[in-house]
Design a protein around this nucleic acid. Structure first.
Length: 825
RNA sequence: GCCCUUGUGGCGGAAUCGGUAGACGCGUUGGACUUAAAAUCCAAUCGGGGUUCUCCCUCGGUGCCAGUUCAAGUCUGGCCAAGGGCACCA
């Protein structure tokens, strides 16, 4: 064994050996129980960043730990490789997106291997390859056949910079999630997935996900946005037979309606406008259309609107009230029309105040009645001015009033969701083509399954502006109808890349299958994913879409489970100097440099060391240095003592020498480390325990000049245990030391260390003696003493005698093996 | 505005059940080794006060204010701050 630690040399060597031996290949057949550990697969942007390093290290340590614990571990990797950056690179540098992507994958693959990650590379999946997107298209067709994929004309989010539409989930604060440009509204015919059909199940099943954090679950629940209320239909006085339905969560306030608002895009708005008001309404609508999403959504904005000139009749009171249009009513939500009760809704109040609309109080706090002239009363209360419902609590009136509407035939109970259907069309080239054709005779027809994949054309011009490059292909659009064989045109849109990433974790179970996306047998064997690890930024987008896919595919009979990810760990960001690493801030750290200067083991150790995985992690150069020093310290510990170490690395557990403190320390460390990993993967404390154990071995060794036969066994036991405990983290160094000590095979195939409960505690205890809850003395005692003896030990302490002299002892509390508290007066 | 998360030394953070607050590390300071440096090793390191001064005593301290308890970083109620999510969703 070399005297000094040369990580680069060791790491290269073992990476080659593992690759040669296919050390991390996962067989489908095994007697061992399965464990599926998964990191969110990367977009091949060019180079790994520290966020990747953190993500993949966490999952890798979990995978290796589970393997040592006796599981057959599936730990795959792949590439989310469709998407705009490849296309942008093509536009800017004239590169081929496929080539650009391949080069990036090649480079990043090299980096992943340098990090020493235990992937089964035979299961690698790349979403932009025809053997993968064939099945993305196939799944699209299955959803289409089930009525879950459909095309409709809709107001969509348009990003002019990206030249494509965006899903609602991809609009952040009215801006594009990718490029930050302001999103506009456009009216286009687009493909959607009917995720709204699954709204209730997506919400309900969140309860099943015990292994997910509350933050992610709440974000999803808020996004689905379930609310319970009622639909009321109001007859229009001026137009015979026309009704305006509204959705409300406050049916209890129905007697307080003083006007009604429809969205500028409301379907019947023209019928509801009188000739005198037509011009003003038209102008208002034109203006609303022009406005960007961001302007329209601003809460600071003063509400505006114009009257339509017509009126509705409130069936509860017979009162008439005017109709208005205002853009605070949203056409996409509810019925696109809102009943306005300014006395009990702050938005309605603001609007009524501005346009001088009347107020009518219908809910009152009996202790503190308000006329609502200065603001809406939105708390609970008792109904007034509400005919037969007067005196009823408003919470009870909700149901009673809705029931009256149901009985009267002018309303019903209604549950509403905020979630909208998932818009998947993209007017871009670098994505999976949507496999449908348009035939004049047969209409919208899915491509025949035997004709899949619908290949991306390669004869395209990337320099075009304002339209998808795919439209410049001379060979792509013209095709024949799969039904009638006549001339037909292909769909020119491609799919949102989130479609590709909504099922990749299923493909890993059967990545080479050429007849199906995956076999049912294998997908049911490996899935659900036991531990998923990735960034919080996917809390809604990717995770919601994947859950939807899993449920839809279960309904199609393709698999037997309905939640894809049993446990989810959302790792925190990697910061430098308190802010997120980014190129624009110039505070990035290049993983390559760290590998080169310190080696991958140091990088892995450090990225796990300072913070628990779920929290943000502050990168510091001094911290890296500290971890490197620690590894050197471990190395020296072994090399300095190598001549004393036994080759019998299978030393029996527990080691006979119970009275040796070091033996106990090792057992304590094994127990602590195993529990810390089991408890939410607290790798930061795991690493502090590596250090404690190392320090303890040094201390023990420092006290001995000569080592007896038994001492040598104890030392060997301690060092071999340390090396094995560190193996999931410092993968190369542990392997090297393992072999230097005469170990066979791979340390990564060794069984995880076990501990003896009797030895995993100190032989002596420190008895803490408190007086009135304050610590006054600490006394060493034998581990086995009982409560009565502990009490006597405490009371016989000189210090305690002094403190209690002349005082009455009210009571004495004994916590076994720990503490005695004496209460005096 | 609503929802979620988090508040502990100079810093990252530790503390299964309510039971020694500050593990482990970074940083800092002092020392050893060395011609010197690096590396390494040893020691100190929450704050105030006291002291017979490498020993030791005492008081305070986990965002703030209350409460429960023999005992609260941990439990309960009420606030405050930071980060994140949603947001004219009727």
């Amino acid at each position: 064994m070399k005297e000094s630690y040369f990580p680069q040399e060791i790491e290269k060597k073992w990476q080659a050996v593992w690759e040669e031996n296919k050390a991390f290949h996962t067989p489908d057949n095994s007697d061992k129980p399965k464990y599926y550990a998964l990191s969110m697969f990367p977009y091949p942007s060019g180079k790994l960043h520290m966020g990747h390093v953190r993500n993949y290290t966490i999952t890798d340590v979990i995978a290796r730990f589970k393997k040592m614990q006796g599981y057959n571990v599936l730990h795959p990797i792949g590439w989310d490789s469709f998407g705009l950056p490849a296309e942008n690179a093509a536009m800017q540098h004239g590169a081929d997106p496929a080539k650009w992507t391949d080069e990036n994958i090649a480079y990043m693959t090299k980096q992943l291997k340098m990090l020493g990650l235990s992937y089964d590379w035979e299961r690698e999946v790349t979403t932009c390859k025809p053997d993968y997107y064939k099945w993305t298209q196939w799944l699209f067709i299955q959803l289409f056949k089930k009525g879950l994929a459909y095309k409709k004309e809709a107001g969509v989010n348009w990003c002019d910079n990206c030249g494509t539409v965006l899903a609602n989930e991809q609009v952040i604060d009215g801006k594009c999630w990718r490029c930050d440009s302001v999103v506009e509204k456009k009216y286009l015919s687009q493909w959607f997935f009917k995720i709204t059909d699954y709204a209730e199940r997506l919400l309900e099943d969140l309860d099943k996900l015990e292994g997910w954090g509350d933050n992610v679950k709440t974000m999803q629940a808020n996004w689905i946005g379930k609310s319970k209320g009622a639909i009321f239909r109001f007859k229009v006085k001026e137009v015979d037979g026309l009704e305006v339905p509204v959705y409300t969560t406050r049916p209890d306030t129905v007697h307080g309606i003083t006007y009604l608002v429809v969205a500028p895009e409301y379907k019947d708005i023209e019928k509801l406008t009188t000739p005198e008001n037509k011009q003003a309404v038209e102008e208002y609508r034109a203006n609303a259309r022009k406005m960007s999403e961001i302007e329209r959504l601003s809460t600071e904005r003063v509400k505006t609107g114009v009257p339509l000139g017509t009126h509705c009749i409130n069936p509860f009171t017979g009162e008439e009230f005017p109709l208005w249009t205002a853009d605070y009513a949203l056409v996409e939500y509810g019925t696109g029309a809102v009943m306005a009760v300014p006395t009990h809704d702050t938005r309605d109040f603001d609007f009524a105040k501005k346009y001088n609309l009347p107020l009518k109080v219908v809910i009152q706090n009996p202790e503190n009645p308000s006329d609502c002239k200065d603001g809406a009363y939105t708390e609970e209360g008792i109904l007034v001015n509400s005919n037969e419902f007067n005196g009823m609590k408003n919470t009870e009136a909700k149901e009673a009033i809705t029931q009256k509407a149901v009985d009267g035939g002018f309303g019903e109970f209604k549950t509403q969701y905020r979630l909208r259907d998932w818009l998947i069309s993209r007017q871009r080239y670098w994505g999976a083509p949507i496999p449908v054709v348009y035939c004049d005779k047969c209409g919208i027809v899915p491509e025949k399954e035997e004709n899949l994949p619908v290949m991306l054309p390669t004869d395209v011009d990337f320099s075009v502006v304002g339209k998808s490059p795919i439209t410049t292909s001379k060979t792509f659009e013209e095709t024949t109808c799969p039904i009638c064989g006549g001339k037909a045109k292909r769909e020119m849109d491609t799919m949102d890349t989130f479609v590709c990433s909504s099922w990749y974790y299923l493909r890993y179970s059967d990545p080479k299958n050429s007849t199906r996306p995956f076999s049912k047998e294998l997908v049911d064997k490996w899935l659900p994913v036991d531990q998923y690890v990735g960034g919080i930024e996917h809390a809604i987008l990717h995770l919601l879409y994947s859950r939807f896919f899993t449920k839809a595919l279960k309904d199609l009979g393709l698999l037997s489970f309905d939640e894809p990810f049993k446990n989810l760990l959302t790792q925190g960001m990697v910061l430098k100097d308190g802010s997120k690493m980014s190129k624009s801030k110039g505070n990035t750290v290049d993983p390559d440099e760290i590998f080169e200067n310190y080696g991958a083991d140091t990088a892995r150790l450090f990225i796990l060391s300072d913070s628990p995985p779920a929290r943000d992690f502050d990168w510091s150069d001094a911290g890296v240095e500290g971890c490197y020093k620690f590894l050197n310290r471990v190395w020296r510990l072994v090399s300095d003592n190598q001549k004393y170490l036994t080759k019998d690395y299978k030393l029996s557990f527990p080691l006979a020498r119970e009275n040796d403190d070091l033996v106990r320390t090792v057992h304590i460390a094994i127990k602590g480390i195993t529990n810390d990993i089991a408890n939410d993967f607290q790798f930061n404390t795991v690493i502090s325990k590596y250090r404690e154990l190392t320090n303890a071995i040094y201390d023990w060794r420092g006290k001995k000049s000569d080592l007896s036969e038994e001492d040598r066994n104890v030392l060997s036991f301690a060092i071999i245990s340390l090396v094995k405990l560190m193996a999931p983290v410092t993968v190369h160094m542990s392997e090297e030391i393992w072999h230097d000590l005469g170990g066979e095979g791979s340390v990564h195939n060794e069984k995880w260390c076990e501990w003896d409960e009797n030895l995993a505690k100190a032989s002596k205890i420190t008895l803490v003696v408190q007086v009135n809850g304050k610590v006054k003395d600490k006394i060493e005692a034998d581990e086995g003493v009982n409560d009565e003896e502990l009490k006597n030990i405490a009371l016989s302490s000189e210090k305690i005698k002094e403190l209690t002299a002349g005082k009455e002892i009210v009571k004495t509390i004994v916590v076994p093996k720990k503490l005695v508290n004496i209460v005096i007066k």
